[in-house]
Design a protein around this nucleic acid. Structure first.
Lengths: 223, 223
DNA sequence: CAATGAATTTTCGTATAGGAAAAAATCTCT
DNA sequence: AGAGATTTTTTCCTATACGAAAATTCATTG
């Protein structure tokens, strides 16, 4: 392979199509982007061809050590190898959210509505939330997830319990910004119900942590 | 565990001390930072206590699936779990590089001197390079590594071969900035030798891909 | 269309990760 | 200190990842 041989290479047998998913998909793309065959990557990473083949198809779950070797062979670092495809938010996108279209979610003492749930690859996930007055405590545990979080109190007063911090009371118009991976929990601080706006980053990463929804009705006809 | 139970917890038996390294160390710290026991994390992640114990001590190499579970249990994403402890550059550090103190490195057609090699945790690695005239081609392959790269031509003319791009010629004063994970290669473009300045990010990540440099001459007195 | 060549997938034996429970180490009381 | 409780480490067996080589698939070419 010489410096000038940038891309031209025989096409190769391949898996059906969109079958691949998650890590395997990522690995496959990284390899193909470079125009490499399984053997090429095997040689560079020190893994066996068969191992990479299986990994790309999700038949096995690579160990930490092998992933390190792969990252090195690909010339990237682990974080990059594992990053969920930096699919950027569609440039130029614009969307409005009619009041009724929110997607309602409920937890024990907390009701929130996700805004723009249908927009994929958002960097932020804004939510409107309602906290019932008094209704809380003896809650099992803190919430904790990747990314950062912004909170604005729209109505009422909220107590924020943050791990390792004394509880903080926020009133209408007050706001907070913090690392979501620090344990946290909201509760109504007064006698009235509370309305808040919460914006999270990395939201899907924590929720859809798995891969492939693999919807039962695969209507993505390849045809 | 209630919301107010922030930190107080029994101390626990532990490994000697700085024995741990790399991923195991990182995992151990993440768990302890939260004041969790092996059982706590085991319950949250769905792994067995013994598995986590071994992983923290580097006795086994976790599979991708288990690492995912751990990340979820810890409330962080994979990249964060695998990030090489964001050890920041020593605040307030200042260093000068007398001309002779560079650390000389040579590859086939390329000689470069790393500046400030003894400074650990640098975000950038600046290098002075010399390319022999004509001496190149039939070079095996592109260079590829994590991070970004800046190039300034000090003397002579350089041809940059970048994967998927037509070769580009840069003359004195010209510069380039690119993603180092795109395959790249420098060569003298004229009859004279070439002097260039190159600055990379994530340099140690690609070279000392392993863990713990454990430098021999640590002359970065904190004092 | 058969033959050729290159790439990928299967097969199968071995090495290693993963979990349950026992053993060891460390902490907390009185 | 000693007893008991908690946390971590070991042990041992099963499940699964890994690699070498054979088998298969796909694209070309005569």
């Amino acid at each position: 392979m010489s410096p000038n041989d940038a891309s031209p290479r025989k096409t190769a047998p391949d898996m059906p199509d969109t079958q691949r998913a998650g890590f395997g998909r990522r690995l496959h793309d990284l390899r193909r982007d470079r125009g490499w065959t399984l053997s090429d990557l095997a040689e560079r990473s020190g893994l066996a061809v068969s191992t990479i083949s299986k990994a790309e198809r999700g038949l096995i779950s690579l160990t930490y050590d092998r992933m390190r070797q792969l990252a090195k062979g690909l010339g990237i670092d682990m974080a990059e190898l594992l990053s969920a495809e930096g699919a950027a938010f569609q440039p130029g996108s614009f969307a409005v959210a009619p009041k009724g279209t929110f997607k309602r979610q409920e937890t024990r003492n907390y009701v929130y509505e996700m805004l723009f749930p249908e927009l994929r690859n958002k960097a932020m996930m804004p939510m409107m939330g309602t906290l019932k007055a008094h209704d809380l405590m003896d809650f099992d545990d803190f919430v904790r997830h990747p990314g950062q979080e912004f909170l604005l109190v729209l109505e009422g007063a909220v107590t924020i319990y943050a791990e390792g911090k004394a509880p903080v009371i926020l009133r209408q118009g007050d706001s907070a910004y913090f690392d979501s991976s620090r344990g946290h929990l909201y509760a109504s601080a007064g006698a009235e119900d509370v309305r808040i706006l919460v914006v999270c980053t990395d939201f899907e990463a924590s929720e859809l942590s798995g891969d492939v929804p693999v919807n039962g009705t695969s209507d993505t006809a390849p045809d």
